[in-house]
Amino acid sequence: MDCARLAEALSGARGKQEVFRRALAALEAEGIIRCGEAYGVGEGLKLYQMQGCRTTCPLVAHSRALAEEALQRGEKVVDGPFVALPIRQGEKTLAVLVLSLAEGQELPEALPALLLLALKRPGLELAGRLLWAQEEERRRVGRELHDGVGSLLTAALLTLKVAERRPEKLPEARARVAEALEEVRRLSQELRMPLLDDLGLDEALRRYLEGYRRHGLEVEARLQVPPLPKEKEVALFRVVQEALTNVLRHARAGRVKVELWPEGDRLFGLVEDDGVGFDPESTPPSVGLLGMQERIQGLGGSLVLRSAPGQGTRVEFGVPL
């Protein structure tokens, strides 16, 4: 692999998680690895996962044990096609990469040095990007309030003015106010997610999907969600919610599949539709997609979007439990 391309891929990374996400993506794109995971080293030399495999694969079953061994030994550990590579600064291990090498491939010798440089370079942490994503979400809600609720209330006000002279217009005015009230309730539910508060992620998603069935979509759901911390449930709900919103707005799909399932110490997810698809290479990433990526990365996982014109869209992600 041309190390200049790897250095370029790492140059714009902000924070540790993005450094490893970009490194793994670059190595996979070059055909050097099939997949990979990244672990940070916390207090007491405890490993915590920063990037997980987005799909089930043989690496998942061996990843943590190999990372622990590489951390203890302070050197590279090889087990068949799997390589655990510690990233060290002097005697201190900062992180461990666990990689599934493609057949006949070897890791670039400069990989540890490039990763160390990227990790030491000052930059904005992921929190800054999450704040940006949150600000974009506020702008979206503001636009919906202005364009949706505001327009309905303006129409209701105009109808009421007409009704001062023509009382037969009062039912129309009441109908417009009722529409505005329903829109406010919808936005409120999106923001508060009362189903999630009361029922947990599994049941909240099942009930949420009923709304998409009422829009005429054929929804296939396979949900096996173990108990999770509330903040993780919220993040995963938002990811599925955004993926489904994109299906409804853009995909012109007849069917959508939603899956969440645990495997080992990971939770994997999938949202797939049979819609018109698009070319991700020529389409700028939307705020919604960036928000999904940030939420999954914030949980130490990874997300990938696959699509092609006429072939639907598939969103896959995996996070540590």
Rank of each mutant, 00 (worst) to 15 (best):
G200Q: 02
L66Y: 09
L116C: 02
R166T: 13
D198K: 11
P167Q: 05
K76F: 04
P280Y: 11
L45S: 06
R129I: 10
R22G: 10
A113W: 13
A221Y: 01
V234R: 10
E182N: 15
L303G: 00
Q89A: 05
C57E: 13
R174C: 07
H250C: 01
A133E: 15
R186F: 07
Q72V: 12
E37F: 00
R306V: 15
V225K: 01
V319N: 03
F317I: 03
L191R: 11
V149K: 12
P171S: 03
Q297I: 06
P284G: 00
A102G: 12
H62G: 02
P171K: 12
G44H: 09
H146D: 11
G318I: 06
R207P: 04
A38I: 03
E75R: 08
L270A: 01
E272M: 08
T154Q: 13
G277N: 08
L244V: 07
K232M: 11
A61K: 07
E183T: 11
V276T: 11
I296W: 03
A29N: 11
E103M: 04
L228I: 13
E210S: 04
P280N: 04
G90M: 05
L248A: 09
R129L: 13
S302Y: 07
R129T: 09
T245R: 15
R314C: 12
R222H: 12
R166H: 13
A29P: 00
P171Q: 08
A113M: 07
E316Q: 15
E218W: 04
S307P: 09
V315Q: 00
Q49E: 15
E68C: 00
P280F: 02
K120N: 13
L260D: 02
G200D: 13
G301T: 09
G42D: 02
R54M: 13
V225H: 03
G142K: 08
I32C: 03
P229R: 06
G150R: 02
L115K: 12
V304D: 11
L45M: 06
R192L: 15
G74N: 10
G200Y: 03
R207L: 14
E231F: 12
R214C: 01
Q17I: 14
S151I: 04
L170I: 09
L157A: 15
G36D: 10
I32D: 04
S302R: 14
A253Y: 01
K16C: 07
M1S: 07
E75T: 07
K169M: 13
L153I: 13
E28T: 14
F278A: 10
G318Y: 01
A113D: 14
C53W: 01
G148F: 08
A38P: 00
E231L: 08
L209H: 07
D265L: 04
E135F: 10
G300V: 01
L97C: 05
R255I: 05
A156V: 04
G301I: 06
A155K: 11
G142R: 05
K257A: 14
L97S: 02
Q51I: 15
E136I: 04
E259H: 12
G211H: 06
